[in-house]
């Protein structure tokens, strides 16, 4: 990327892909410089995405692998008393539980003798899938419903708005807990339900944006020319709502990740995949003796939510039309 395009010079021809990439780099650089918090959020997010993509490369161990060593003290037929004095005596192999962080296991091992580092690494996958997936569903769904609601005002709009009100009147966590219990708690279902629970906010945001755009002169002009509703929606309204869509997309991610962590913490999260919320819960029983699982998993949740929140805030600052040019 050696070529640097001066963004003040308006190109007379269509920009080549290289130039486009170059200008993207420049605006990225500008974004990082102008919004250092948002920039650091972006870095955090990118790091987590990289970690999730490369999980199998950097994991070092299989997250499900159970580490164990032979037990030299094994004794057959121990009495309850002997077991109470030395619980390990009854098993021919010892699970390497609660190992300290070190060379063998960077973050130590958990109660089950599994490598915490690889668990945390794989946990990023679930968080990202949940955060991004639910947000996509909420935005796409919100876009469709919001546009219908805004465009076909009247009874449809009224009904949709009341349903949105209904969803917002129930605490998000309760809503998610109810939804996710309806179906089997696979990752896909949990993502879907989180997205559905998030529809209320996105619908509301998008509806008000569409309403604004609808009243603008170019939409009126298009209508005068006789363009169809669908055409006006797709050609005129949609492109003018992109900023709002991006904002709606970015601000929800952190909340979905936290919601997933919360339901996992309560034991009602997605199954069959390492989850940070569930890890925080699992490590809590012996937090004072073996804090690592809880500390690392909780820290990871905090970092990824922080990253998305910072990025979302900065994006909004940049994209929000009311603040643009300030």
């Amino acid at each position: 990327m050696s070529q640097i395009v001066d963004p003040t010079v308006v190109p007379l021809r269509d920009p080549t892909p290289l130039e486009r990439a170059g200008s993207a780099m420049v605006s990225l650089g500008r974004f990082m410089k102008g919004k250092p918090l948002g920039g650091s959020g972006l870095v955090v997010v990118v790091v987590f995405i990289a970690v999730a993509l490369l999980a199998t490369v950097i994991q070092r161990h299989d997250p499900d692998e159970i580490f164990e060593t032979p037990n030299p003290d094994y004794k057959a037929n121990p009495s309850t008393l002997e077991l109470a004095r030395n619980p390990d005596i009854g098993s021919p192999v010892l699970v390497s539980q609660f190992e300290e962080p070190g060379g063998g296991h960077w973050f130590g091992t958990d109660k089950f003798g599994r490598d915490i580092w690889s668990q945390v690494i794989h946990g990023s996958r679930l968080s990202l899938i949940v955060g991004l997936g639910a947000s996509v569903i909420a935005v796409v769904g919100g876009l469709i419903i919001g546009m219908i609601s805004a465009y076909y005002a009247g009874i449809v709009d009224l009904l949709i708005q009341r349903i949105v009100d209904m969803l917002q009147a129930i605490p998000f966590l309760v809503l998610v807990l109810v939804f996710t219990q309806i179906t089997e708690r696979s990752v896909l279902n949990v993502v879907l339900w989180l997205g559905v629970a998030g529809l209320a906010i996105t619908t509301r945001l998008i509806r008000s944006a569409v309403l604004q755009v609808r009243e603008s002169e170019f939409v009126l002009a298009a209508r005068v020319v006789g363009a169809s509703d669908l055409r006006i929606m797709i050609r005129h309204v949609l492109p003018n709502c992109v900023a709002v869509l991006i904002i709606a997309f970015s601000i929800g991610i952190g909340a979905y990740i936290l919601a997933e962590a919360s339901i996992s913490f309560l034991g009602a999260g997605p199954q069959g995949i390492p989850s940070w919320g569930q890890m925080v819960q699992a490590g809590r029983g012996s937090l004072d003796l073996h804090p690592w699982q809880t500390v690392f998993a909780g820290g990871a949740i905090m970092m990824i939510v922080l990253g998305f929140n910072l990025l979302g805030d900065a994006l909004r600052d940049v994209l929000d039309p009311r603040l643009r040019g300030a």
Binding site: P78, L83, D88, I89, G90, S91, L94, V95, F112
Partner: peptide
């Protein structure tokens, strides 16, 4: 035995069809 280790810190004993708790009827360890 591994499950007892992982889940109960080794505090437990394997049971046959009759639990070890019914000591008069269980198969010895």
């Amino acid at each position: 035995r591994q499950l007892i280790q992982q889940l109960h810190n080794g505090l437990g004993k394997v049971s046959g069809p009759v639990s070890w708790m019914q000591e008069a009827w269980a198969i010895s360890q």
